[in-house]
Lab assay of single mutants.
Amino acid sequence: MEVRTIKVFTTVDNINLHTQVVDMSMTYGQQFGPTYLDGADVTKIKPHNSHEGKTFYVLPNDDTLRVEAFEYYHTTDPSFLGRYMSALNHTKKWKYPQVNGLTSIKWADNNCYLATALLTLQQIELKFNPPALQDAYYRARAGEAANFCALILAYCNKTVGELGDVRETMSYLFQHANLDSCKRVLNVVCKTCGQQQTTLKGVEAVMYMGTLSYEQFKKGVQIPCTCGKQATKYLVQQESPFVMMSAPPAQYELKHGTFTCASEYTGNYQCGHYKHITSKETLYCIDGALLTKSSEYKGPITDVFYKENSYTTTIK
C-alpha cells in the first residue's frame, strides 16, 4: 500500500517557510505537534488534498525554529505562539472599519479597549522592536488589523473576551517599542525636605499616572512627601515624541487643539466601556464603527496623549 502524501510549508514567522512532505494517514499533531492554519487549530486533523502548498504555523520545537521565533517575536515564552494563534482565530472574524481616516474595530468580545489602543497607536510616533509587531502594525494602518490585535493580546497575556485596560495595554506595548531616546527629568520640591531631581528613561519617561493635564504637570502637581507634608512635583525636561497622561476616570474637559487623542471610560472596574476622542479640525468621538463630532467635550476621561518633541522648564 502506497503512502499518500502532500507537500506543505511549516513556519513560526510566515517569513521562513520549511518544506514538509506530510503523510495523509496521520494527523498534523502526530507529525508536527500543535499546528495552526489561519489561526485555526488543526492539530487533530489529517492532511487533505486542499492543504497542498498551504502554510501551517507550528510551535518552535527545534533550534532553527526557536531562533526564527525569537528573532521575529522577541520572546522565548513557549506558550506565546499558541496564544497568538488562538487569538487570531477570533480577531480574523472582527470587522476593521476605516473611521475618520483611522483603522478602528467594530465592537465584539469586549474589544473596546483594543480599538482605543489601536486608534491611539496610529496617532503617536512609535516604532516597535519585534519585527512581528512592526509588520502587523503597518498592515493594521492599511486596514488589516487582525494579526496586530492578536499579537497585542498575546504580548499582554490576554484572551479574547476578557476586559482590558488601555493604560495597561499601552504599557505592555511600550515595553516592546523603541523608547531608548526618551528621557524625563522631574523635580520634587518640599518646604521641609528641599528639592530632589529624578531622571527617568524609556517607558517611565512617557507615562504618568495622577493627572490628565500635561500643562498642569509642567506647572506642578501636589504629591505627598515622605515627611508627610505636601510637596510639588513638576516637569523639568521632556525628550520624547509623545507623552501619555493618565488618571482614574473623572469628568474632564478636553479643549480642541490642546491634545492629540484621549480615552474615555464609562462604567466601573468590573464592567465598563471605552471610547476614543481625537482632536482634528474639530473633536471626534470614535466608538467602534461609530463616529460623532463636537466642538467641545466633557466626560469621564482616563488617558490623554500629547505630541511632544523637546521641553525644558522655565521655572527657576
Rank of each mutant, 00 (worst) to 15 (best):
S240T: 04
T76H: 13
C261M: 01
L59K: 14
G82E: 12
A177C: 14
K229G: 15
K92G: 06
A132H: 03
L151K: 03
T120A: 07
Y284A: 09
T19E: 08
G164V: 03
T103F: 08
T232W: 11
Q98T: 13
M244V: 07
L17V: 10
V189H: 14
M85W: 13
L118Q: 03
Y138R: 14
I124D: 04
L291N: 08
H18G: 07
A177Q: 03
T198C: 09
N110H: 02
R139Y: 11
M24Q: 11
T5R: 13
L133V: 03
F259A: 01
M24R: 12
E308G: 07
T75P: 04
T313R: 14
G161S: 05
P130E: 05
T75N: 15
A146Y: 07
I45A: 13
G202M: 00
K280C: 10
T5E: 10
H276P: 04
Q195A: 14
T116W: 02
D303M: 00
K218L: 05
V12I: 10
V3Y: 15
A231F: 01
C149Y: 03
G202L: 01
Q238D: 01
E52K: 10
K255P: 05
I277Q: 03
C112Y: 03
S310V: 14
A140K: 01
T302I: 00
T226F: 10
I223L: 09
Q196A: 12
E308P: 09
H18A: 12
S263F: 02
K54D: 12
T211Q: 10
G101K: 06
G267V: 05
E162K: 04
F242H: 00
Y297C: 03
G194K: 06
K44G: 10
A262D: 00
E253Q: 10
Y96F: 07
L235V: 10
K191M: 11
G228Y: 02
D13T: 13
L17T: 08
V236H: 07
H51V: 07
E239M: 13
V304H: 00
L173M: 15
N129I: 09
E204N: 15
G194W: 02
Q197P: 07
L119A: 04
M207L: 07
T10G: 07
E281W: 00
L126W: 02
E239G: 02
K158T: 04
T35G: 07
V188H: 10
F70W: 12
A247N: 08
L81P: 13
H90W: 15
L200N: 08
K219T: 13
D62T: 13
R4W: 11
L59V: 08
G143C: 05
D41Y: 08
V42A: 11
H48L: 14
Q237S: 14
L179I: 06
M170T: 02
H18F: 08
D165F: 05
D38C: 11
A177W: 02
G210I: 00
T260E: 15
Y274E: 00
L290R: 09
M24V: 14
G272C: 00
S279V: 05
Q30C: 14
V67F: 15
N309F: 15
T116I: 05
S263K: 01
G202C: 03
Y172P: 02
K44P: 14
R66L: 13
E162I: 00
K183P: 02
R66P: 10
G82N: 08
G82C: 14
D41I: 11
K307L: 10
E162D: 15
I277R: 00
L119G: 02
T232C: 09
G194V: 04
Q134V: 11
T211G: 10
E168N: 09
V166H: 06
Y84K: 04
T226L: 09
V243M: 05
T43C: 14
G202E: 05
K229H: 09
T312L: 13
R139E: 11
M207G: 05
V42T: 11
I15E: 10
W94T: 03
G299K: 01
A154M: 02
N147R: 11
L179M: 07
G220N: 01
G164Q: 02
T312W: 08
C225L: 01
E281H: 05
E2H: 10
V12T: 13
S246V: 03
E2R: 12
G194T: 05
E125P: 13
T232H: 09
Q222D: 06
N309R: 13
H18N: 07
V304F: 00
T76I: 11
G288L: 00
P300L: 08
L121A: 08
P241R: 08
Q270D: 06
Q30V: 12
V189F: 11
H256Q: 15
M85Q: 10
N178L: 05
V8S: 06
I152F: 03
P47Q: 04
L133N: 03
V166P: 01
T103D: 03
R4T: 12
I315V: 07
E253L: 15
D287E: 05
V8M: 13
R66T: 13
Q237K: 14
V160D: 03
P130H: 02
D287M: 02
H90Q: 13
Y96C: 03
W107D: 02
D180L: 07
E308T: 09
P249L: 00
F217A: 09
T192C: 11
D109C: 04
Y72H: 14
L151N: 02
G29R: 06
